[in-house]
Structures are given as C-alpha cells and as structure tokens.
C-alpha cells in the first residue's frame, strides 16, 4: 500500500500530498469499477429503484444493530441489507403488487424505522454523517476490506453474468438453458447489498445509488454492445470518481456530492451524444422501437 501512496504522492497536485487524500483516492479506484459493473446490470435489469431502497435500509441496519447491542455497525448493516434485499426479491416474485410499489413500500419503511431508532433520545446528529458519507476518513484496514470485496465481486460477477443476462432477456428461455435464474438473481441482489453496505459510510445513504446508477446509465446511452457498456461505464465511473475527489479537494467542496455531480454531468453529455448519433442515423433507420418492420421477402 505504501508503494501505491508513494506513487500518488509523486503526482504534482498539492492535495495528493496528504495521506488521507491518497487513501481516499485508492478507495475510489477500488469502489468505482465494482459499482460501475454492478450498475450495468442494475440499469438493464430495471433495478435502479431497488438499489436505492437498499441504500436506505442501511439506516435500519445500524439502528437494529444498536437495539440488539451489536458493537459492529458494519456487520449489522450487512446482515440486515442482505436479508432486506432477499425479502424484496421474494415479494417481487410473488407478483402481489407491481415491483415499483413493493420497492417503495420497503424503502419508506426502512427509512422510517431507521430514523425512529437512530433519533431516539434526540441523538440523530451523530449519525447524520451516514447521509452524505465522508470518503476522506477511510483507513488502511477498511481499504483492505474494499480490496477483498472488489476481488470477490468481480470473480462472482464473471461467474454469474451470462446467466443473469439471459434471465433479464427471457426467464423461461434462461431456465430452459439450465440457468438457475432464481439463484443468480439472488446472488446479484446480495452482491449489490454487500457493495452498498460496505461503502455507505464513505459515500452516504443519499448518494450511494447515484454512484451505482449514473455511470451505467450514461454508458448505456453511448454503448451498442454489452462489452462497450461495461468498458464505457467503468471508464466514466473511474474518471468521475478520481476527478470528483481531486476537484473537491482543490475547491474545498464535499467529496461525495462532487463525484456524483461529475457523474450527472457525464450523463447529460451522454444524452447529447446519443441525440447526435440518433440524428445521424435517422434517415437510414426508420424503424421505431416497438414496431415490427417487414421481414425478408418470402423465399
């Protein structure tokens, strides 16, 4: 790690001479690619709202941890986050109500329960940092956790991706090809839950979903293939993460919001790029999305 910090220190930027900024930079380099990759599936699987609800559940996780007397906040958040994610998935699968309604119910319930517990006795102020996070307070031991999470996440992601992709296109088709659709979907939501809970202290409840969704949403506007989507998304996440961190240090703004605003700017640019591309293609591609253009003539 020291070698990495030494390397960062060699970059001629005043802010990078500080140890806490170097640590934050390493954290950003570890977190953003994982969030970017998970985000591509979240936007294609139409689960943006789902991950938002997960982020909010961190409040309840910490609250329950306190109630149960757990000394480790992270363990309480992880356990609660995973259970909460699987519970939403189960209820969503029963089809009792439309997915966005189910997720909204869960989201608001977890926020209310979390706030109720944490604000008991008027002590919410000490938890308010959870809302926006502070990546500049990250420690070496926590970075090792993030590194382990990144390695485990990318490995599992490589293993389940193809099956998950088929599932998002057509579940019976995926099942007929031997994909364990429920298991892979559960693995995915657990991965998102773990990634969110591990990083919520640094990014914040209010911003975590933006980090997951915005780069992938911007990448989607520009990409035509799955690979392009992954590459563009990870690049956007890295550039915005590093750029946002350094910009915030140079200008004295809050880091999390600066990173997210950089992502939002990328999203706007990607929309413009998409508009330009579509305009260029319009004369050659008259087919609208949901129309079925005439097929090849009969042989």
């Amino acid at each position: 790690m020291e070698a990495v910090y030494h390397l960062f220190g060699a970059i001629p930027l005043e802010s990078l001479q500080f140890g806490f900024v170097q640590k934050a930079l390493l954290a950003v380099l570890l977190l953003t690619p994982l969030f970017g990759l998970l985000g591509t599936m979240a936007v294609n699987h139409q689960m943006a709202f789902f991950s938002d609800a997960l982020g909010h559940s961190a409040l309840t996780g910490i609250g329950l941890g306190i109630l149960l007397g757990l000394r480790n906040d992270l363990a309480a958040m992880l356990i609660f986050g995973v259970i909460w994610a699987l519970l939403i998935l189960v209820i969503k699968r029963t089809g009792a109500a439309s997915a966005d309604t189910v997720i909204s119910v869960f989201s608001s319930t977890s926020v209310a329960a979390g706030l109720l517990i944490l604000a008991a006795g008027g002590g919410f102020a000490k938890y308010s940092s959870l809302l926006i996070g502070d990546i500049l307070t990250i420690e070496d031991s926590e970075l090792i956790w993030l590194l382990a999470a990144l390695a485990a996440g990318v490995t599992l992601w490589a293993f389940i991706y193809n099956g998950l992709l088929l599932t998002s296109v057509n579940t019976p088709l995926a099942r007929s090809r031997g994909v364990r659709t429920r298991l892979w979907e559960s693995a995915f939501v657990v991965m998102v839950a773990v990634a969110v809970m591990l990083s919520i202290r640094w990014i914040g409840v209010l911003l975590i979903n933006a980090l997951l969704i915005l780069p992938a949403a911007a990448g989607r506007n520009l990409a035509r293939t799955i690979r392009q989507h992954a590459v563009i998304t990870v690049c956007i996440a890295l550039v915005c993460g590093v750029g946002g961190l350094l910009l915030s240090c140079e200008t004295g703004t809050a880091t999390g919001p600066t990173i997210v605003l950089c992502c939002a700017a990328c999203y706007v640019l990607s929309l413009l790029g998409k508009g330009l591309r579509d305009r260029q293609k319009t004369p050659a591609a008259p087919a609208k999305q949901n129309e079925l253009p005439p097929d090849a003539p009969s042989a």
Partner: peptide
C-alpha cells in the same frame, strides 16, 4: 426485454 439495452445478437448468442 428493454429494447434500449445495449445488447447485440452476438452478445446474446455468445452465452
């Protein structure tokens, strides 16, 4: 499926 998804025939067939 989401028709705006960046997914080509090759991507799906590759699975």
């Amino acid at each position: 499926f989401d028709r705006e998804m960046p997914l080509t025939v090759q991507d799906l067939m590759a699975t």
